[in-house]
Simulated scan of single mutants.
Amino acid sequence: MNIKKGQINIIISLVIIFFLIVLSKFGTQSVVASFNKSNPINLQEVPILNYHKVDILNHALSVSPREFEEQMEYLYQNGYHTITPDQLMAYLKSGKSLPDKPILITFDDGYLDNYTNAYPIMKKYGFTGTIFIVTNFISKDERFMTWEQIKEMQQNGMIFGSHTANHKSLTSLTKEQALDELNQSRDEIARQLGKPPKYFAYPTGTYSGEIEDMVRKTGYKAAFTIEYGQVGADSDIFLLPRIPIFKGQKTFRSFFIRLNGAPVLEELGIIKN
């Protein structure tokens, strides 16, 4: 999608105003110090987009198919290349090269519209993504995908991870219940797709140090939060931040600012990866 010059000027003006407010609130000393922060591995930071539904519902977590295509078209026209979690991990752990302007696109829950609406649009632009599924909803609730649809998507490059068995906040459960949610989901995905999932996303975004440790010991290689930010050399691979994308009155403008604003906010030390 092409942004008109007037729209760019408005966005730049809003961002400048925002940063002036931030500078007045936090002071210049901490901001300048953040610019001098050294990165021993010298890795560029990678954005991870976080979607839920792609449909016409009037809900904050629902981005319409038209809006979703606008966003995918923007990424395509601006030279972004989608990557897998495996590529991201190889990059973070050993500095293995990534394509220019890498981006990881993720979805939480496994809604049916991820297959009917988002998937065809992503194929149109040659993009792949990662979907974290709630296994006890799959093939059981008509609002969610079926295992047959998931297998088709997997054969075409989509990656599937765990979002637990029942989408319960793990911090609200006993240790035994939380482990059961992790193990049930992992085992069902392995049974259906032929291999256990490597990656996990915290349901409702809630976690603790104990939960993080359980996710690691259950066999997952990394885990994703809903905290805003980009992934870099200093990121905890079991607390990876993402850029949540919401519906709003100006959905594309919000998408544009959240995607392009994250690097600047991190440089200013306002958000940390």
Rank of each mutant, 00 (worst) to 15 (best):
D86Q: 11
D86V: 11
Q87E: 05
Q87S: 08
Q87H: 04
L88S: 02
L88R: 00
M89I: 13
M89C: 07
A90H: 12
Y91C: 08
Y91R: 00
K93E: 06
K93T: 14
S94V: 06
G95K: 03
K96Q: 14
S97P: 02
L98P: 00
D100T: 02
D100E: 11
D100I: 07
I103G: 02
L104H: 03
L104K: 04
I105K: 00
L112T: 09
Y115V: 02
T116H: 02
Y119C: 00
Y119T: 02
P120S: 01
P120F: 05
I121T: 03
M122E: 01
M122S: 04
K123T: 09
K124Y: 00
K124A: 05
Y125S: 05
F127Y: 11
F127N: 01
T128N: 10
T128A: 05
T130F: 09
I131H: 01
F132Y: 10
V134P: 02
T135P: 08
I138D: 04
I138C: 05
S139Y: 06
D141I: 04
R143T: 14
R143F: 14
R143L: 14
R143Q: 14
F144H: 07
T146W: 01
W147Y: 07
E148G: 11
E148R: 04
I150P: 03
I150N: 02
K151C: 04
E152W: 09
E152H: 07
M153T: 06
M153R: 01
Q154D: 09
Q155P: 07
Q155L: 15
Q155S: 15
G157M: 04
F160R: 04
G161Y: 11
S162P: 08
H163L: 12
H163W: 10
H163V: 14
T164F: 11
A165K: 03
L170V: 12
T171W: 10
T171R: 09
L173K: 06
T174S: 15
T174V: 06
K175S: 13
Q177A: 12
A178I: 13
A178G: 15
A178N: 06
D180A: 14
E181C: 10
L182H: 07
Q184W: 11
Q184I: 12
S185W: 10
R186D: 05
D187R: 14
E188I: 15
I189Q: 02
Q192K: 11
Q192W: 13
K195Y: 07
P196V: 08
P196S: 13
K198A: 14
K198L: 08
Y199S: 09
F200A: 09
A201G: 12
T204V: 15
T204P: 13
T204K: 15
G205I: 09
G205T: 12
T206F: 12
S208I: 09
G209L: 14
G209I: 13
